[in-house]
Nucleic acid binder design. Structure first.
Lengths: 173, 173, 173, 173
DNA sequence: TTTT
DNA sequence: TTTT
């Protein structure tokens, strides 16, 4: 239920392979870094200047499993989710905020191609092995705080904790 | 032009009066703090738990002027804009990131009522005087970083700089 | 599941009270006539010309019950649904098509006020009695075909049949 | 300007090549037939049943030119526009209504691939010759009324007139 | 870090 | 009439 509207719609390409983790109950949580491109006319030069915006996407439940399995660096994807800002403590003890686009059972994810980055033509075919990095988070992308935490759900001061979802962890979506 | 899609749609209420500033060229730039409400079922208690998400909105051009003039704390509003993340330096010299919903000529703002917070019934009527705080930013609401900068376009290290828009500052939207 | 995206987002006002009907299984099906206003500059006169677009909305399940109970002629409402075109036979035996915005469990309905048309101030309060017209449909508003059918689920040639939803009629949404 | 919200977002595939026409002033007007796919669970069989919805899209201005040039039967496309219902007279003199998704300067069109239907790999490359049928309208697709009119802007009773846009015809978008 |  |  909602007494408001909170909706985000994005189409862009993945800057890297999905980062798949699992909750203690075995539910997938997938992070994506999504680039949306825009260009605008520079008033000095009159030239069109490309501009890339990077978005941090978090998927839960079944849509997370599909994303983790089929999406790869470079994949074009449609995302429908909601904005959520999480508070966490930096190593200096100060508050930090990270805004993410959360895709849960109310959201949507549509693969618009399935190209991996190996140059392969695996159109519509699942990648061999879903990437899973439960122990070693990748370096954070531009525009997002460093992610140095250990396993999912073990945030600690001085690192960015993982997102939590509103839904019951025991019941798969 | 865009080779991607970057769209945010929100309906919520203002947590405080709009913060109106002006660029050197006299164009309005308005910041809003918008709350969207949601509720979800707590799995322990089975109760519905209300949850408020706060969004930082930045309006440019004509829509900014209208927002600054007619919106007030408590106003219900429809916002259509795009996600944008800005990088700035904290007082400790470290990088910080703030994600905002930018409403420019491609976006939309719809007043869904015009209630001020004084309990007045100025339904559909303009507020007496548009609030303008070019010298003293209000404290940030829950879920958003503190805003301690001075006037618009004078960011300094240790404070959060103001957003900049892609559009020609001299040409009103 | 969907391999495409089909989404409609509207904010407007009801041209008349909701038309509530029930399936044989007791599920509510509500029809709304929603007006969205726009204005554009006439190139002859240079004047802004108002233009109203009428939309036929069909709600199913729980959201239908809420709509039927709380919405009234004049109510402002947010609608999120999908486009659906139904084929039916006119009295002359020829095919007709009606496009509707369908709001089911994947959609959303948000009351933006609860004004009835009696000029009452029942803000946020339920109307006394949900209107139900299972036997006598109101005349269609501007921009929509006449609705002359009998009870729900008894379409006949020469009238516009009622919409059907994809979902199991026995299981409430 | 708008005092309401009227927005449609679609991702689907073209059922046929675009139909490009020109106004007397030389502005392109392009019609698309777009299929969006969905599937739902049949309650009798428990099977997933595919369901296709067809949409009539009308593009104006620059986005129309791009669509006419680069899209082909089978192309996947993102459409953002508004709902509009047009009234016209059937050959029997009776009123008919056709609902379209209008994409003008406020809308958006994104090619999600550029595949033509000849099986060619013209990825991102313009098709040899933009289809133009100013004299001979194609048979109407399923889910849409027959289109039997002559050239653009010469509707007559007994046929479905072409759509008109709110914008000044002389000024390219 | 993506894509065209 | 499309697509996977």
């Amino acid at each position: 239920m909602a007494r408001g509207v909170n909706k985000v719609i994005l189409i862009g390409n993945l800057g890297q392979d999905p980062d798949t983790r699992y909750t203690p109950n075995g539910n997938a949580v997938v992070n994506l870094n999504l680039a949306t491109d825009e260009s605008y006319k520079d008033r000095q030069t009159g030239q069109m200047v490309p501009k890339t915006e990077w978005h941090r996407i978090v998927l839960f439940g079944k849509v997370a499993e599909v994303a983790g399995q089929y999406l790869r660096k470079g994949s074009k994807v449609y995302i429908e989710g909601k904005l959520q800002t999480r508070k966490w403590q930096g190593q200096d003890g100060q508050d930090r905020y990270t805004t993410e686009v959360v895709v849960d059972i109310n959201g949507q994810m549509q693969m618009l191609d399935s190209r991996g980055d190996g140059g392969g033509m695996n159109q519509g075919a699942p990648a061999g092995r879903p990437q899973q990095s439960n122990y070693n988070a990748p370096a954070a992308p531009q525009g997002n705080p460093q992610q140095q935490s250990g396993g999912y759900n073990q945030p600690s001061q001085g690192s960015m904790p993982e997102p939590v979802d509103d839904f019951d962890d025991d019941i798969p979506f």
